[in-house]
Design a protein around this nucleic acid. Structure first.
Length: 666
DNA sequence: GCACCTCGAGTTCA
DNA sequence: CTCGAGGTGC
């Protein structure tokens, strides 16, 4: 019994420690360019905290980072409860969706006007005045509870401390940093050898989150106000004129539109001219002008039905394509890659981008020396959109597919009617290294600490040539410790990760082996079906083909693989090193909300990783897939969702936002 | 033989 | 994310 109490105390201490650490890191994330820990570590700690909190719900604290939505995570400021919640806006991404938005409104109100505003990329703020004097300023927070930033807001010159009338009023708007101030700030940071801010938004957020208001003062922040909750006027436009009269800065580019076509020309105009502004905008806000109509339309779970934000298409940047190189994948697949003159796109510096295959290059007529437009697909993966033909001068070199492997030199093979070229040499070092990297990767054997670089080095030193060598590393321990960059501790942790991976369930091993066409999903299917690797080895093509989702091609791939003497020898070797080859199953918690439904996840979530969410769903009898289709039941939408969100809307598929998700999974 | 879905493979940066 | 290929069902 006593022992139990001691354990509880230890867990509780750990919980408090985690909360402090996470809050500290979140603070750094907003204020520093380089936080002291990476996202992975942050996620790991967050998972640990969630685990403790699920086991001891009564311990959950108000300032626990798991209680915050949308990453607004600092507890150093006083909390402020918003009288009227601060809503966020729904998004539209193209003209059709703007028209759909208009249709939904026109159905209810055939006659109406819109107000169009620039969507300033800053931080939302709520200002409360009493008797005409600035009383309190708060961040949006999760929309319900924000943080008191009055001391910093008072340093913003354009925000009046005293209004032209002695009224009690709350207004909302956006705090931002002008491009000019941002550049000055970064110039100064360079001079002083301090970390730089990535963009004006981060710089503004970092400044407003300073406890010491002299910092905010020196940062030269600015603001525009655009919302008057509980307005006593009939229209939004009149409200704006009024708050302007009171002395608030109101953006001069706001217009009243009689029709949706006026809205669309406004969108066009600012898509063109956004770079002329001295502040960054990331879209256009479209609001229904009549406030009675607004009230009647009301809100969905989270966003107003009477307003939406058009988001600009992802930023494209032009840069020079200096070369095309070819990489060899573990299957021998050859992929052309663009080498680019490094350029900043949406926050990070891009120097490479995939060109997929030769058809892609030929279709876009990409040539070496061309200037190309780069964007970030889904805000992450760099991609080449198109060539700027105007910048051609004739010196560009046409794309030519190579005919021999860039690594081992063997002649490349291409099957008729197939796009990709392959290096068929099983001894090709590139292929072997990539296979080994795949073997240890997270979805395969999941050997932490044995990263790509180490695999490559160990391969070149001759320590690892095939899968089984990984499990023989423990006999070479003394030698490894002597290697540069390694010590007792690092070698130990790698060896223990390796040893841990021996227990993995069969599907991980099947995936890790890298049988052609067998990914993690099919590996799981096979493991379930056959339970042990021997059962699978002894099966026939006919039997395999009978399994749903496995056709002639996959079944013959599997049979071929196990017919190969070398592969069988390697499997036996692994067996003798006591690698588990049995399907361990999975525990499924019956849950009607998830059972037999197909889920697609898009965007990210601050307090659960996508992988964990996926597992959560699958553990409850649901399925997850990557593409949205008619068969999808639910699309779960996190921060910065990709095109899947659009598709879900167009197919009218049930959508769960973060609130809904966390309501369900707690 | 076609349409539609699902899966696998490769992918970038910090 | 994005591509191509494989699988299924009409």
């Amino acid at each position: 019994m006593r022992y139990g109490i001691i354990i509880m105390v230890i867990i509780m201490d750990r919980m408090n420690e985690l909360i402090n650490l996470l809050n500290k890191y979140a603070y750094e994330y907003y204020t520093l360019d380089k936080p002291s820990v990476g996202d992975d570590e942050y996620d790991r700690l967050m998972q640990e905290l969630i685990k403790i909190e699920t086991n001891h719900p009564s311990w959950i604290k108000v300032d626990s980072p798991t209680r915050k939505i949308g990453g607004e995570i600092i507890s150093q400021f006083e909390k402020v409860v918003h009288d009227v919640p601060m809503f966020s806006l729904g998004n539209v991404f193209n003209e059709d969706e703007i028209l759909e938005f208009d249709e939904r409104i026109s159905k209810v109100f055939p006659n109406h006007k819109y107000v169009c505003e620039l969507k300033i990329d800053g931080l939302a703020v709520s200002l409360e005045y009493r008797g005409g004097k600035l009383y309190k300023a708060a961040t949006r927070g999760d929309g319900i509870v924000g943080e008191d930033i009055t001391h910093n807001v008072k340093t913003i010159k354009t925000i009046p401390h005293k209004l032209n009338e002695d009224v009690d009023i709350t207004v909302r708007g956006e705090i931002f940093m002008s491009k000019e101030s941002f550049n000055k700030l970064n110039e100064k940071s360079i001079k002083n050898n301090e970390p730089m801010f990535q963009n004006p938004r981060n710089a503004a957020a970092g400044s407003i989150r300073q406890l010491d208001s002299s910092v905010a003062l020196s940062r030269n922040l600015d603001a525009f106000l655009y919302h008057y909750p509980n307005s006593k006027f009939n229209t939004h436009y009149e409200s704006l004129s009024y708050i302007k009269k009171l002395g608030f800065p109101v953006n001069p580019n706001i217009i009243l539109c009689d029709s949706i076509s006026d809205v669309i020309s406004y969108v066009h105009k600012w898509t063109e001219k956004r770079n002329d502004l001295d502040y960054e905008i990331d879209g256009i806000v479209i609001k229904l002008n009549d406030i009675k109509m607004q009230d009647e339309l009301g809100y969905t779970a989270k966003v107003p039905k009477w307003a939406t934000a058009y988001k600009f298409p992802p930023m494209q940047v032009m840069t020079k394509l200096t070369n095309i190189i070819f990489t060899v994948g573990r299957t021998g697949q050859i992929t052309p890659n663009a080498v680019l003159e490094p350029v900043k796109v949406a926050g990070s510096t891009i120097s490479r981008a995939t060109l997929h295959n030769q058809d892609f290059c030929k279709e876009k007529d990409i040539r070496i020396g061309d200037y190309v437009y780069i964007y970030k697909a889904g805000d992450v993966i760099p991609a080449v959109d198109r060539v700027e033909l105007k910048k051609r001068n004739g010196s560009e070199k046409k794309f030519v597919m190579i005919s021999s492997c860039p690594m081992c030199g063997s002649k490349l093979q291409k099957k008729e009617d197939m796009v990709d070229y392959f290096c068929d040499n099983v001894l090709c070092p590139a292929r072997n290294i990539e296979s080994l990297i795949h073997f240890v990767s997270r979805d395969a054997m999941n050997i932490e600490g044995l990263g790509e670089r180490i695999i490559e080095d160990f391969y070149n030193y001759g320590y690892i040539k095939k899968f089984s060598d990984i499990y023989k590393l423990d006999s070479k321990k003394e030698e490894l410790i002597e290697l540069e960059g390694f010590g007792n501790k690092s070698v130990d942790s790698i060896l223990s990760a390796i040893s841990k991976s021996k227990e993995n369930s069969l599907e991980r091993l099947l995936f890790a082996l890298g049988i052609k066409g067998i990914g993690s999903k099919t590996a799981k299917l096979l493991a379930k079906q056959y339970s042990t690797i021997d059962n699978l080895i002894n099966t026939t093509t006919d039997e395999l083909s009978k399994i749903k989702d496995i056709g002639d091609i996959l079944s013959s791939n599997i049979i071929e693989y196990f017919k190969d003497e070398k592969n069988i020898k390697e499997i036996n070797e692994l067996k003798s090193l006591s690698i588990n080859m049995i399907y361990l199953g999975e525990k499924v918690i019956e849950d009607e909300t998830f059972k037999n439904k197909r889920f697609v996840i898009t965007g990210s979530f601050s307090n659960i990783s996508r992988l964990d969410l996926k597992n959560y769903i699958e553990n409850r009898g649901g399925f997850t897939t990557d593409a949205v289709s008619k068969k999808t039941n639910v699309v779960i939408v996190g921060d910065d969702p990709g095109s899947k969100y659009d598709k879900a809307l167009s197919l009218n598929i049930e959508i769960w936002n973060k609130e809904k998700l966390f309501d369900i999974i707690k």
